[in-house]
Nucleic acid binder design. Structure first.
Lengths: 230, 230
DNA sequence: AGACATCAAATTGTCGACACTTTTAAAATA
DNA sequence: TATTTTAAAAGTGTCGACAATTTGATGTCT
C-alpha cells in the first residue's frame, strides 16, 4: 500500500500537524463541513496557534478546508456536485498527463509500469474481492502516469492538491472500487497506448477511464438515494 | 481594463500585502528567481513577520513563490520549460471549461459574451495596434468562458492560481499579444460553438486556440534566441 | 411573542520576542 | 595556498500576548 509519491517528509512541526490533520479529514475523523476551532486544535495537538495556522494554510492549499476572513475555517463538504466537478477536472488534467506520459516517459519508467500491472494481475488472481488493495493499486497506476508526464505543474496540481480530495470523496462515500477487473483492463489498454507512444489515443483512453469511474460512482449514489426513499 | 473577476477585495492587512506583492512579482518589480527576505519585506511594508508570512502563503498558493523549510522563499523563475508546462495545463483545463461553458452557460451570460466581442471588434477597428487593450480583452474573454463552466474547481484553479503566472510570463517575456485579429476570429468561432451548445467542438476550438498562442510565443522566443547569437 | 439594541465571551488577526537552523566569515590546520 | 573548523551573524520556525472582529446571550421596546 504505497502512498502519495510526492508527499514530502515532515521536517517542521507544522508539517507534522498538517499531515495528521490531512489524514484525519480525509478519513472523516474530523467530519466534513465542520467548523475548525484554532484554539481547540492547537491545544489538542499541543502546538501554538501560529504553527496550527501554518498547517491550516497547507490544508487550504489542497482544498480540504475553506477559510473566510474574520470568520474561520471549515472542512469542505462532500457533495455530489463537488464530486462531479473534481472528476471533470481529473478528466481534463489526467487526460493531458497521459498524453504527455506517452510522449515523455523514459524506458525505465515504462518497464516499471509494466511490472506494476503484472503484480496487480497476479494479486488479483489470488484474491479477487479485496477492494482495499485494488484501491491502492488504482492510485499507484494513476500516480505513475502523472509522474510520467514530466510536467511539474500537472504533477503538483494532481498529486499534491487534487488527490487528497479524491481520496476523501472515495472514503467518505464508501467507494471501494467495485469495478476491479474492468479497471484493470482499462489500465492495460492505457499502458499499451503509452508503450506505442500514441499520445492522442492515450489521452482518449484515460479520459474514458475516468469518465467511466465517475459514472460508476454516480450510479452507486443514485442507487443509495433510491434505497433511502424505500 | 477589467481585472481578475474572482479577486476578493482585501479585508485584512495580509490580503493587502499579498495583493501588492502579487502585483510587484507579476510586473517584475520584484525580479524572478530572487530570494525573499522576510525581515526585509516586513519592514518595507511595515507589517509584522506573521502578517507577511500569511501573505507569502497566498503567493505560494498561486505558484508565484516557492518555499523550502528552514531555507526560505524564492520568486519563481520564468523558464521556457515552465511556460510550456503552463500552456499544456491551460489547454487541458480551459478546453474542459469551454466544453462545460457550452453546456452550462445561461442565456444572459451568452448575451454578455456577444456584447463583449462586439466591443472588441469595434475598438479593434478604431485602433488596430494597441496591444495593451487587446491583452486585457483576451483575458476578459477567457475569464468569461471559465466562469461560464460553472465548475468551482475549474474557476479556482484557473482564475485564482494559474492566471497570475500566465500574466507574469506574458509581461516578463514581453508578449504583447501580436496576433490580435487572428485571436479575435478564433474567439468568435469559439463563441459560436458555445451559442450552438456544441461542447465537443467548443473544447476542440479552445484547445487549438491556446495551442496556437503557445506556438506563437515559442516562435517569438526562438527568434529572440536567434537574434542573441547574431 | 418577536424584533432590536447592548454587552460579555469567544475567535481570528496581528505583533514582538525567543529558539533553532542555515549561512557567512574568520581562524586554524595541513 | 587550499581545506577544514569554529564562531558570529542572519534567517526561519515557534511561542505567548494583545487588538479587532464576530458570536451569543441578555435585556428592552413595540
Amino acid at each position: 500500500m504505497s502512498g502519495n509519491p510526492t508527499q514530502k517528509l515532515a521536517v517542521t512541526t507544522a508539517d507534522k500537524v498538517f499531515q495528521q490533520l490531512q489524514f484525519a479529514i480525509v478519513e472523516g475523523d474530523i467530519p466534513a463541513g465542520i467548523k475548525i476551532s484554532e484554539p481547540g486544535l492547537s491545544k489538542q495537538y499541543d502546538v501554538s496557534r501560529a504553527t496550527l495556522r501554518e498547517a491550516l494554510n497547507r490544508l487550504e492549499k489542497c482544498h480540504l478546508i475553506e477559510r473566510k476572513p474574520n470568520i474561520g475555517s471549515r472542512v469542505v463538504e462532500c457533495t455530489i456536485e463537488g464530486l462531479l466537478e473534481i472528476y471533470q477536472v481529473r478528466e481534463a488534467l489526467e487526460g493531458m498527463a497521459c498524453r504527455l506520459a506517452a510522449e515523455n516517459m523514459s524506458e525505465d519508467e515504462i518497464v516499471d509500469m509494466k511490472a506494476m500491472l503484472n503484480k496487480h494481475a497476479n494479486s488479483q488472481d489470488l484474491k479477487d474481492g479485496i477492494a482495499y488493495y485494488q484501491e491502492e493499486g488504482d492510485l499507484d497506476f494513476h500516480y505513475k502516469v502523472i509522474l510520467g508526464s514530466h510536467n511539474q505543474q500537472l504533477i503538483n496540481l494532481l498529486c499534491e492538491q487534487l488527490y487528497h480530495l479524491v481520496r476523501m470523496y472515495r472514503i467518505q462515500f464508501g467507494m471501494n472500487s467495485p469495478r476491479a477487473t474492468r479497471a484493470f483492463n482499462e489500465h492495460s489498454n492505457i499502458l499499451q497506448a503509452i508503450v506505442d507512444r500514441d499520445g492522442e489515443l492515450a489521452e482518449i483512453l484515460m479520459r474514458r477511464h475516468i469518465a467511466a469511474s465517475r459514472k460508476n460512482i454516480e450510479n452507486k449514489i443514485a442507487a443509495m438515494k433510491q434505497q433511502e426513499t424505500n
